[in-house]
């Protein structure tokens, strides 16, 4: 994980994502996009554009893959979680 990323943010595993696009449709800020790139399974995966996430969790709850989307919320402090 990139320590310099700005919270909150959504992280999508490009290899697990099946590119259904439900997260993109559900994102109120439109900060998720379907990538031009293909993953190893041949899906155009979903990507966070890097800013604008408000941590609503829509992408997490609308994603059918248990481990494809992780959302790091504002009060997340990595040191304390360990």
């Amino acid at each position: 994980m990139n320590e310099n990323r700005k919270y909150p943010f959504s992280e999508i595993d490009p290899d697990i994502c099946k590119g259904c696009g439900l997260c993109v449709a559900s994102c109120p800020k439109g900060v998720l996009v379907i990538s031009d790139k293909l993953n190893s399974k041949g899906f155009h995966f979903s990507e966070y554009v890097g800013e604008g996430c408000i941590g609503c969790g829509n992408c997490f709850y609308t994603c059918p893959e248990p481990s494809a989307v992780t959302v790091y919320l504002r009060n997340y402090v990595p040191e304390e979680v360990s």
Partner: peptide, 30 residues
């Protein structure tokens, strides 16, 4: 503080045959 794969799921899907034990068998958008 994190929305991540819930602990109600098995970490590695050991009962699933084949190599892809980190993802479901469901179709995209199911």
């Amino acid at each position: 503080t994190i929305l991540r794969k819930p602990r109600g799921f098995i970490d590695v899907y050991k009962h699933k045959p084949g190599a892809e034990k980190d993802r479901t068998h469901y179709c995209p958008g199911c």
